[in-house]
């Protein structure tokens, strides 16, 4: 009988652990996006060119997993990201317009 109890408790413990891991994985994918917004703002204040913004955003995010996209006006933003922040970079002298988008989320 004791073996049966131990086996039952062990089984339930294993199932519960598996469920908890699944739950945590699903919730952990969420992101506030606050970091991305401020990182992009900081990069924009210091930016001279689109390449410069991308590099500055990477520095500001410091290893946090966000995706940084550099798009031309009219180019579609790939779907699949729930939290995105964008900025428009303009150089009237060279006529260059770029969109910088930082995305995060599940």
């Amino acid at each position: 009988m004791r073996h049966l109890e131990a086996a039952a408790i062990g089984l339930v413990f294993a199932i519960a652990s598996a469920y908890m891991v699944a739950l945590t994985a699903r919730q952990g994918a969420g992101a506030s996006g606050v970091g991305a917004q401020r990182a992009l703002a900081w990069a924009l204040l210091n930016a001279q060119s689109p390449e410069n913004v991308t590099r500055l955003v990477s520095i500001a995010l410091n290893g946090t997993s966000y995706e940084v996209h550099v798009l031309n006006p009219g180019e579609p933003l790939e779907p699949g990201h729930s939290v995105c922040y964008g900025a428009v970079l303009v150089n009237l002298t060279s006529g260059v317009e770029k969109i910088i988008v930082v995305c995060a989320g599940p």
Partner: peptide, 15 residues
Amino acid sequence: ITYERGHLQAAQLVH
């Protein structure tokens, strides 16, 4: 999801 607005929009105008 709540979007934070402020810093980026002001920085955009500065740019």
